[in-house]
Amino acid sequence: MTSVHVDPAPGRIERLNRQVDYWVTVYKRTWRGSVISSFLMPFLYVVAMGVLLGGLVDSGGASLDGAPSYLAYIAPGLVAAHAMQTAAGETMYPVLGAVKWNKTYLGMVATPLTPADIVTAHLGFVVFRVATACGAFLLVLGVFGLFTSVLGTVLAFFVQILIGLAFGTPLYAYSAGLKDPTPFAVIFRVLIMPLFLFSGAFFPVSNLPDAIEWLAWLSPLWHGVDLTRMLTLGTVDGPLALLHVVVLGTLAGVGYWWSIRRLTRRLMH
């Protein structure tokens, strides 16, 4: 065997680069299965809710926070919810599986990689999944002329990644310390689905009874939906937009820190 030069003290980028081949193989074997949920389902929602239900809503003369049509109103909400769902799907079963079932992480941590490297690369893959799923979604909706500005749509694209991380990192941290997958079904039912339905994707949260309207403010998805909508409709409210970014950014940051901590404890005990 020839001897080769290997960087004895690789930097963070190099340590992530070393995991690219792994994630490419993961994507190669899973992309077919994710095509329907990532690229087709969103459009079924657009057609059913935006076009068909929307026709009914528009004829009723509803007030839609300045959106020209129900389709234009609901589209950014669906994109943001899609970012949340894609990130959640990639950070629950796959994380627990890599720790517990196929033990991929246990193999990785026996190499120079650290738990922080493993978390970061996995989240990089989550970003890739959110970016491709939501990017394609935004592109098609944009081509159909639903958004007012190209710049706003481009910014909205980056907001989707932020939404993905705001959900992905805390869920990653949670999954990394779990013993069994039972809580996942509960999370889908009591967290993901209610947020999807009541965070302003389908109707203005001001339509909620006053007593629970404030609850929507606690929903990270509402911050994401509202921010995406501002950008795509060109109705940006500066201070509120900043608040949205801070809320989502804080969740992503704290979740990232917590993920590294939990995975380190799980793998390096």
Partner: peptide
């Protein structure tokens, strides 16, 4: 990695070492 080929298991692992 049970879903990878036998050879890919080795190649992907070698990449972790740079």
């Amino acid at each position: 990695d049970t879903e990878l080929s036998i050879r890919d298991n080795l190649v992907v692992y070698g990449r972790y070492f740079g």
